[in-house]
Amino acid sequence: MAERSLTRKLTASLVPALPYLWLGVFFLVPFLIVLKISLSDPAVAQPPYKPVFDWSDIAGFFSQLDLDNFETLVGDDLYLSATLSSIRIATISTILLLLVGFPVAYAMARAPERHRPLLVALVILPFWTSFLIRIYAWIAILKPEGLLNQGLMALGAISEPLTILNTEWAVYIGIVYAYLPFMVLPLYAALEKMDDTLLEAALDLGSPPWRSFWTITVPLAMPGIIAGSLLCFIPAVGEFVIPDLLGGSETLMIGRQLWSEFFSNRDWPLASAVAILLLIILVVPIVIYRDVEARRLETES
C-alpha cells in the first residue's frame, strides 16, 4: 500500500513537473543565453560569438562580459530612431484600432442575443487564416496600380493613383487589419455585460446620449479597452512581417532591425542586445497586461 501511494504521488507530481521542466529548458534557459550573448563580443567564427560558458574558468567568464553592444545601441542614432518609431507606430495603430474596433464591438453587444455567437465566430475566423496571407492580400490592394486605386479612379474620386504601399500608412492599415480581432473581442466581452437600464435611466433623467457614452459606457468598458489596447500594442512594437512587407525600406521598426542584424549583418551579439532592448521597452506593458488578465480570471471564476 505504501508503495502504491508512493507511485501515486510520483505520477501526481509529474503533472506540474513536465510542463515546468519544458518551459524551463526551452523558455527560461534560452532567454538567459540571449542575455549572456548580448554582453559578449562578436567573433569571426561559427557560431559568430565568443564561447558561451566554460566551467573551469568562471572568473574569466564574467570578466569577458561587457556592455559594448549596448554602447553601440545607445551611440547609434539608427537604434534610437527605430525604437522611437516602433513606439510611435504601435501607439497610433492602437488608437486607430480603438476607433475602428469600438463601434464594431458595441454593435455586436447590441445585436439580438441569438445572433451574437455567429458575430463572435465571424470576428475570430480571419484570425485562423494565415497572418502572412492576410498581409500579402493587402499588397495587391494598396499598390499604385492595385485594386484600391483602380476602384477609386473608376469612381472618379481621384485622378492620380495614391501612393500607399511602402509608406507608414500601409503599416497602419496592416496592423489595424491583422489585430482587429484582438481589440474587438475584449471590448465586446466588457460591453456585453453592460446593463442597458443604466443608459435608459440616464436618458430618462435628461442626459444627452454623448454624455451617457462618456460617463457610463466608456468607464464600464474600461477593462476591455485596457486589455484590448495592451494586446495590440505589445506585439505591434515588435512587429516584423507587416513593416517588412507593407512598409518599404523607409519604415524603421525595432523588430525589423533585430531581423536584419541577425540575417543580413550576422551580428548575433548585437541582435541579442536589440532583443534585450525590445524586452525592456515591453516589460512594463507585459506586467500590466498580466495583472489585468489575472484579475479578469479571478472575477470570472
Binding site: V34, G238, L258, L279
Partner: peptide, 16 residues
C-alpha cells in the same frame, strides 16, 4: 511566450 514578440522567442531558441 504568448505576448513576447516572435523575433525574441525565435532568436533566443536559436541561440539555445
Amino acid at each position: 511566450p504568448m505576448v513576447m514578440p516572435e523575433v525574441i522567442t525565435g532568436l533566443s531558441l536559436l541561440l539555445f
